[in-house]
Design a protein around this nucleic acid. Structure first.
Lengths: 220, 220
DNA sequence: CCCGTAATGTACGAACCAGTACGTTATTTG
DNA sequence: CAAATAACGTACTGGTTCGTACATTACGGG
């Protein structure tokens, strides 16, 4: 794909090149940043448009309204972590080590995608009304859950893991820890004067999630 | 305090009774509910006023603007859990049991104060800008931290606890778990079809936080 | 009992903002 | 190459929303 570099394109006037896919993707990218930055109600459609090489008219052309735009932003954000989880292959590992891998994956993803975590927080303030409207998200199972279920089964069979937790409980605990560091970073820092995302704590916290879960699972 | 019940008061017309404290408190209560419900940008000052026995004018009279109103709502919300923590006396308990008590207290508070958890989420979306502006909150230490520090010291001295965690790490882990159940309830339910606040899980989860922390702390 | 001030109410304005009416140009297809 | 249509831009509007100007009333101190 050769980058079009004529002035006519840059200025957006007549002579501009038309590329529906690029325009659509650029709107989604910009909207994701803007929603994550300001929240759903705080984000401005005009501002999103201004930060794009196209106009507000195009946002409504492709996404109908602000709510639907947010729905598609969420769908896109969830897609990333889903595909990461899909690629996870831990069936050959010791159950405890498999749990560590899974926790590490979630930790790394959330650490490197703060916008994702913020978008999820924002969606929760809105009681997941956008996810509910999304056929792509509302009934899409999490591949990590199947992985987790298998790990727990193997761990139990080997007599290593306790048997009073299910995959969703473990997933919840891992998510809670990893989400909290990013989602509650600011109030935590304001009150306790400790930035949870400071690189100095990164390795310590990464090991801590894994240790928390493994020690819990291996205790009876 | 006798409830004034004359029609003149209810109608708010001339003859109304003046009570600065009551008016102020009523505004704060209503604002807290409204902010927690709709978020900072989603909440409407007009709506808050309408749900009060006074008018919008009074909100600006007592709180200057919407931001300052939110600041004082936050201050009030934090006061509750702070005083709970202050009353916690666990120095006579076995360190592990003391951790369980502390985790249980946080669990119970967050479970019974979803609005508090939501307000904190909202404040994080806004990068704690309101807390930063609050002298009451920005440099107010958490009494639970001192309690925790003492528990950990006793546990270490008794050879029960590991020595590579500090009080803030433990507080973070407990908060993460307890906050997540409420803060991420909606997206979690939409995606996994499990309501974390369903009473059926309450006892299980309550035991789970405590077990997570105790098993982690007692592992070396 | 009267006067100053704290407390309250009404009405309004100016800015903002989601969404649209209408017009134009590029691209594709027959 | 012409007609259809997909892709885009400009300018505007109607309703909303924070905040305020101005008027008024209750209450406490002297």
């Amino acid at each position: 794909m050769a980058a079009p570099s004529s002035d006519a394109v840059a200025s957006g006037g007549p002579g501009r090149i038309r590329d529906a896919d690029r325009t659509r993707a650029e709107i989604l990218d910009t909207a994701a940043r803007e929603f994550a930055e300001k929240g759903f109600d705080g984000a401005r459609v005009d501002e999103i448009a201004a930060k794009t090489r196209t106009t507000k008219r195009m946002i409504y052309y492709y996404f109908t309204n602000k709510d639907q735009l947010f729905v598609e932003v969420l769908e896109r954000a969830y897609t990333v972590i889903r595909s990461l989880e899909q690629d996870l292959d831990v069936d050959h590992l010791d159950p405890a080590e498999a749990i560590r891998q899974l926790a590490g994956l979630t930790f790394d993803h959330h650490e490197s995608h703060p916008d994702f975590v913020r978008l999820v927080s924002i969606e929760n303030i809105h009681r997941a009304e956008h996810i509910a409207r999304s056929t792509a998200l509302s009934n899409l199972a999490n591949p990590a859950l199947d992985v987790l279920t298998r790990i727990l089964a193997r761990g139990r069979e080997a007599g290593q893991f306790r048997d009073d937790v299910d995959a969703l409980d473990v997933h919840m605990a891992i998510s809670a820890f990893c989400v909290f560091r990013t989602a509650n970073r600011y109030t935590f820092n304001a009150i306790f004067d400790r930035d949870m995302l400071d690189p100095a704590f990164r390795d310590h916290h990464r090991r801590m999630v894994a240790d928390l879960l493994v020690s819990y699972l291996t205790t009876r």
